[in-house]
C-alpha cells in the first residue's frame, strides 16, 4: 500500500506537476509554488497564474537508502538503488521538494543548479502519475 493520492486530487495539481504553474500575489507580487490559499507574505487571497521556469538550485538534499523507501517507491529503489530527494529553491523564489534524477547521488551539492524535467513519479490504481523531477541544469 502506498500514499493514496486520489485521481481527482492529483488532477488538481497537474498544472504544477507538468508545467510549473505557480501563482503571483496581485497585491505584493510574491510568487507562491505550489499554489497556496493565501499569499505567504501578505496573506492576500488573490493571485494570477504564472509559469515558473522550473530551474533553481539545490537548497538541501538527502540520499534515501532503498530499504526505507515508501511502498509506492519500492520498485524504483529496487530497480536503481539509492535515490536523491531534495528541496530545490526555484529561481523565482519558492522552494519545492522533488527527486533529483540523471545524477550521481555523490555529486549533489547545496547550491548546485538544477532544471526540471517530466518523469514518471509513481503509479496508483493503474494510472501513471507524471510530474517533475530535477536534474543537472542544461549548460
Amino acid at each position: 500500500m502506498g500514499a493514496h493520492i486520489s485521481i481527482p486530487m492529483y488532477e488538481r495539481t497537474v498544472g504544477q506537476r507538468l508545467a510549473f504553474e505557480g501563482e503571483r500575489c496581485t497585491d505584493c507580487g510574491t510568487v507562491a509554488f505550489p499554489p497556496k490559499g493565501a499569499c505567504p507574505d501578505c496573506r492576500n487571497d488573490e493571485f494570477e497564474t504564472v509559469d515558473l521556469s522550473g530551474t533553481g538550485t539545490v537548497y538541501s538534499h538527502t540520499v534515501l537508502s532503498p530499504g526505507g523507501a515508501p511502498p509506492e517507491f519500492a520498485g524504483q529503489a529496487r530497480a536503481e538503488g539509492r535515490y536523491v530527494a531534495a528541496i530545490v529553491e526555484l529561481d523565482e523564489g519558492p522552494r519545492i521538494t522533488a527527486q533529483l534524477t540523471d545524477i550521481d547521488p555523490e555529486t549533489v551539492e547545496i547550491g548546485m543548479p538544477v532544471s526540471g524535467r517530466i518523469r514518471r513519479i509513481y503509479e496508483e490504481e493503474g494510472v501513471v502519475r507524471y510530474g517533475f523531477k530535477f536534474g543537472p541544469a542544461d549548460d
Binding site: A3, I5, M9, T13, P34, T62, L64, G68, A69, P70, E72, F73, Q76, A77, Y83, A85, A86, I96, T97, A98, Q99, I121, Y122, R129, G131
Partner: peptide, 11 residues
Amino acid sequence: DTEYERLAGMT
C-alpha cells in the same frame, strides 16, 4: 506533506 514531500519518495 503528502502531495509533494511524500511524492518525492521522501521518508
